[in-house]
Amino acid sequence: MKDGAGRVLVASNRKARHDYHIDDTYEAGIVLMGTEVKALRAGRASLVDGYASVDNGEIWLEGVHIPEYAQGTWTNHAPRRKRKLLLHRLEIDKLASQAKEKGFTIIPLQLYFLNGRAKVEIGLARGKKEYDKRQTLRERQDRREADRAMSTRADR
Rank of each mutant, 00 (worst) to 15 (best):
A39M: 13
A39E: 11
A39W: 00
L40R: 11
L40P: 08
L40G: 01
R41C: 02
R41K: 15
A42T: 05
A42I: 03
A42S: 08
A42N: 11
A42P: 09
G43Q: 02
G43P: 01
G43R: 00
R44Q: 15
A45R: 00
A45L: 03
A45S: 09
S46Y: 06
S46G: 10
S46Q: 14
S46F: 02
S46P: 03
L47K: 02
L47P: 04
L47F: 02
L47W: 00
L47A: 04
L47Q: 01
V48G: 11
V48R: 13
D49Q: 15
D49P: 08
D49E: 13
G50I: 01
G50D: 01
G50Q: 00
G50P: 02
G50K: 01
Y51R: 12
Y51I: 01
A52C: 13
S53E: 13
V54P: 04
V54L: 12
V54H: 06
V54G: 11
D55R: 12
N56I: 11
N56K: 13
G57L: 07
G57V: 06
G57R: 04
E58D: 14
E58Y: 05
E58A: 11
I59L: 14
W60K: 15
W60N: 15
W60E: 11
W60G: 12
L61C: 13
L61S: 04
E62S: 10
E62A: 09
E62C: 07
G63F: 03
G63K: 07
G63I: 06
G63M: 13
G63Y: 07
G63L: 12
V64T: 10
V64R: 00
V64E: 03
V64D: 02
H65D: 06
H65N: 07
H65R: 08
I66P: 01
I66L: 04
I66V: 15
P67M: 08
P67F: 10
P67H: 04
E68V: 13
E68A: 04
E68K: 12
Y69G: 00
Y69P: 01
Y69F: 13
Y69A: 00
A70T: 12
A70Y: 10
A70Q: 05
A70P: 05
